[in-house]
């Protein structure tokens, strides 16, 4: 079982004792990762930010139930991901369809760019991740971006090992496909 860092343990204990400054430090430490994971599911930054805020409020309210037998980050990410999937259910795909159509407009005519800047590269990669299934985008980010092991991903998401392996493989293929659709031969600049 993974161990909590001393930093996390101290902040969690102080937060449990009612120290809101300690909780603020926890939020600052994990807010960006949480947003990235929520966005993998929701495909919309504003919605994802709402989900992360809701998740952090849940974490604050349930902090006394956290027993430190698992990593704080694992516990937090599980709450963030569950909150994001619940919000996704509420949205019933309507919003997602709007976002996808907006993305299509945004990318039109940009495939001719010869030299992609760092910012453009980030934009296209995130657009490609927004166009693949939430489970695939989530697993890709957990595995390659945050370098979690398959066992840790299983603990965070509740998915089976075989699903994680299949989604990793399909996710890579689908992401490449989406990048090719947007960039054509320019994809070589990214790889």
């Amino acid at each position: 079982m993974s161990q909590n860092s001393a930093f996390d343990i101290e902040l969690v204990n102080r937060s449990k004792a009612g120290d809101t400054l300690a909780f603020r430090d926890l939020v600052n430490a994990y807010k960006d990762v949480s947003l990235t994971l929520a966005c993998s599911v929701l495909k919309d930054t504003d919605l994802a930010q709402d989900a992360v805020q809701t998740a952090f409020i849940k974490v604050y309210e349930k902090l006394n139930t956290f027993r430190q037998d698992s990593k704080f980050s694992t516990w937090l990410y599980r709450i963030v991901i569950n909150t994001a999937y619940n919000l996704l259910k509420q949205q019933k795909n309507h919003h997602q369809m709007d976002v996808l159509s907006n993305l299509a407009v945004e990318t039109d005519g940009k495939s001719e760019a010869k030299a992609l800047t760092e910012q453009e590269q980030r934009k296209y990669i995130n657009l490609a991740l927004n166009r693949i299934r939430p489970d695939e985008a989530l697993i890709l980010r957990l595995f390659y971006l945050y370098e979690h092991t398959i066992i840790e991903i299983k603990e965070i998401t509740g998915f089976s090992k075989s699903k994680i392996k299949v989604d990793l493989h399909r996710g890579r293929e689908n992401m490449e496909l989406q990048l090719q659709k947007m960039l054509g031969n320019e994809i070589t600049q990214l790889l």
């Binding site: 807010k31 960006d32 990762v33 947003l35 990235t36 966005c39 930054t45 994802a48 930010q49 992360v52 760092e118 590269q121 980030r122 990669i125 995130n126 991740l129 890709l140 980010r141 595995f143 390659y144 971006l145 890579r172 992401m175 990048l179 990214l190 790889l191």
Partner: peptide
């Protein structure tokens, strides 16, 4: 290659 690409996909609040 996937790792290189995904490293660029982090978002900020």
């Amino acid at each position: 290659q996937a790792k290189v690409l995904l490293k660029k996909s982090a978002l900020k609040t």
